[in-house]
Each structure stands twice: as structure tokens, then as C-alpha cells.
């Protein structure tokens, strides 16, 4: 019973009016903070819009996500969460904890790779629905930090079926309860994922009489 996977059902715009939604079985997850991607349990992957993470013990970083698919690799947005307490001492261990959040909207990498210089990763945090723009990164600058992403964009490297890699920006998320991460291209509908991190200190009545 050693087989683990996550179902990923992306909505992929193709052409003017077509959207396809294949069901992809993802089984190998990699996360690149800096340098090579490190393997992380696929069980950490989520497309949830509410992601409980203990404030103060968790770090997070916005990310570009590339997904291997026989129909052509996909690119989308996400966030990498991990254990802040051991980030400096043991980054690989830190990555094993925490959610790896990704959007269910995606582009074909082949549709946008040649225009990578026009794509921007943006991060808005704060209180929904406005928030504050706290970071933005041209995809080319992310690719400069991540050689594997650069090679994926250049078609020199490809991911296998069931593989995906998070390429994180060098930026820690704030402790704000809401954030919106987007990938924007001037000629395409942006890819957006919003999610909340509920206050872990809020009183709970779970399991208690009310």
C-alpha cells in the first residue's frame, strides 16, 4: 500500500473558448526553495482555500508550480509552507511539514514559455478582498534563481507524468489571514489562488459542550 497520489483537476484554457479539465494523478512532488527541488510527500499537496497553519511556527513563500502532463506541462501558482522552527537548521526537514498550496487554474507551459518575460508572479496579503501588494516577481527573475525552471521554460528539461515542482520566490509570507497569489500575463486571464489561514488562537468548541 505504498502508492500515494493526489488528484489534480486543473482548468486549462485552450484557444478562445475551450477549457479542458483532465484528471491528473500526481505522485511525485518537489519543492525548490533554492537550488535543486527536494522531494516532499505528495500528501502535502492541496488546492484548498482554507489552509490551517500555526502562526509563528510556519513559514510560507509564493511559488510558481510546473506540472508534468502528457498533454504538455502546465504552469500555475501556489505557495510553499513549511516548519519555521527548523528552516535554518534543516531546510529539507522544514519542507516536509506544511501545506503545498496550488491553484486549480493553469496554463499550458508551451503557450506561455516564449513570453516568459511578460509573466509576473504577484502576491497580495492582508484582509480580503483588498489586501496589499507585498511582492511581485517577473517569471524571468524567478527562472534566474531556479535553473530547473529556466530549463523547463526553455524546453531543455521536462517533468514526467505525475511529477510537479514548486519553485518558490525568495520571500516569506506575512502572518496575515488572507492572501492572493497570481500569475499574470497581459494577454491571458490571470491565474489566481486565494486562501485563508484561520487564526489558530481563536477559541474552539470542537469536542466541548456548547
Amino acid at each position: 500500500m505504498s502508492i500515494a497520489f493526489r488528484f489534480y483537476q486543473p482548468h486549462i484554457a485552450q484557444g478562445e473558448h475551450e477549457v479542458v479539465t483532465p484528471d491528473l494523478m500526481l505522485s511525485r512532488l518537489g519543492v525548490a526553495l533554492a537550488g535543486d527541488a527536494k522531494p516532499v510527500s505528495i500528501e502535502r499537496l492541496t488546492t484548498a482555500v482554507v489552509v490551517p497553519e500555526p502562526a509563528g511556527r510556519c513559514f510560507g513563500a509564493p511559488a510558481v508550480v510546473v506540472v508534468g502532463s502528457s498533454g504538455g506541462a502546465l504552469i500555475t501558482v501556489g505557495a510553499v509552507h513549511g516548519d519555521l522552527r527548523c528552516l535554518d537548521r534543516d531546510p529539507e526537514l522544514a519542507l516536509q511539514a506544511g501545506a503545498k498550496v496550488m491553484s486549480r487554474f493553469a496554463w499550458r507551459l508551451s503557450d506561455v514559455a516564449t513570453n516568459a518575460d511578460r509573466i509576473t508572479l504577484k502576491l497580495v496579503e492582508g484582509q480580503a478582498p483588498e489586501g496589499t501588494l507585498t511582492g511581485q516577481w517577473p517569471l524571468t527573475s524567478l527562472a534566474a534563481d531556479h535553473p530547473d525552471l529556466r530549463n523547463l521554460l526553455a524546453g531543455k528539461y521536462s517533468l514526467g507524468k505525475g511529477e510537479l515542482v514548486f519553485f518558490a520566490a525568495d520571500h516569506l509570507l506575512t502572518l496575515e489571514p488572507w492572501r492572493q497569489i497570481s500569475l499574470e500575463h497581459p494577454e491571458r486571464r490571470p491565474l489566481v489562488h486565494e486562501y485563508r489561514t484561520p487564526d489558530p488562537e481563536a477559541p474552539s468548541t470542537v469536542g466541548r459542550p456548547t
Binding site: 483532465p22 484528471d23 502532463s69 502528457s70 498533454g71
Partner: peptide, 9 residues
């Protein structure tokens, strides 16, 4: 493949 024509999956 993980995708196919017409029925997507």
C-alpha cells in the same frame, strides 16, 4: 499519457 482528446482523461 495523462491526457487524451475528447474525454480529457
Amino acid at each position: 499519457g495523462s491526457e487524451c482528446s475528447f474525454i480529457n482523461t
